[in-house]
């Protein structure tokens, strides 16, 4: 009997105690905020939307290799020394590689930050921007360009031409050497244009 009454009292007492605790919270300041109007500050190293700085990118493909989900596609072509359009890279030296294609599929991105760590020139970065949701996946497919497609084709052609010339010069030199009687390994003709673009 006494344990029964004790039990009943404990049930009542603990319930009232719980209600006292919740009543204390009733007058506290709320911890939630009105999201689109107010925002929490994100830390500087927050890993959100990926952004590429094309002026820094060297198309070295380190990010594409580091990415666990293959969401980055990079293609580049070496700058032909005969190209009239030369550019200074962000690090102050003349640009060595044109980035002809840089595509990021942020729908695939897992925000691990490995590309950011792998990038030697600090070109690719996670930013604090996290509000970029979209209605279709295509709008999350980001293509970065500093050259128009025509320009890219031009760069590829220029490099191919340059390589052809170089090869022709080399072949001429080799022929010259051969006529002088030195043994030379048999060499192929000039490389094709599509091989010229570097990965």
């Amino acid at each position: 009997m006494s344990s029964y009454l004790k039990n009943v009292w404990a049930g009542f007492y603990t319930a009232v105690k719980g209600m006292m605790i919740t009543s204390r919270h009733m007058f506290k300041k709320s911890v939630t905020i009105q999201y689109p109007d107010e925002k929490f500050d994100l830390p500087a190293n927050a890993r959100n939307k990926l952004v590429l700085d094309m002026s820094r990118c060297n198309a070295c493909t380190a990010c594409a290799i580091a990415c666990p989900v293959n969401c980055i596609t990079v293609e580049g072509v070496r700058v032909s020394p005969e190209d009239p359009h030369q550019e200074v890279h962000a690090d102050g030296k003349p640009r060595k590689v044109w980035v002809t294609r840089y595509e990021m599929d942020l729908a695939k991105c897992c925000f691990c930050g490995l590309c950011q760590a792998a990038c030697p020139s600090d070109a690719i970065k996670h930013t604090q921007d996290f509000e970029y949701s979209a209605y279709n996946k295509e709008s999350l497919y980001f293509k970065y360009q500093i050259l128009t497609p025509e320009q890219s084709a031009e760069k590829v052609r220029l490099l191919a031409e340059f390589k052809e010339k170089e090869a022709a010069a080399k072949a001429a030199a080799a022929e010259k050497a051969a006529t002088e009687g030195k043994p030379v390994a048999p060499k192929k003709a000039a490389p094709k244009a599509d091989e010229a673009s570097e990965q």
């Binding site: 919270h25 009733m26 007058f27 506290k28 709320s30 911890v31 939630t32 009105q34």
Partner: peptide
């Protein structure tokens, strides 16, 4: 609103 206040939330705003 009461549930929000008890839970230190704002509730519908």
């Amino acid at each position: 609103k009461v549930s929000a206040w008890i839970q230190e939330r704002l509730g519908p705003m």
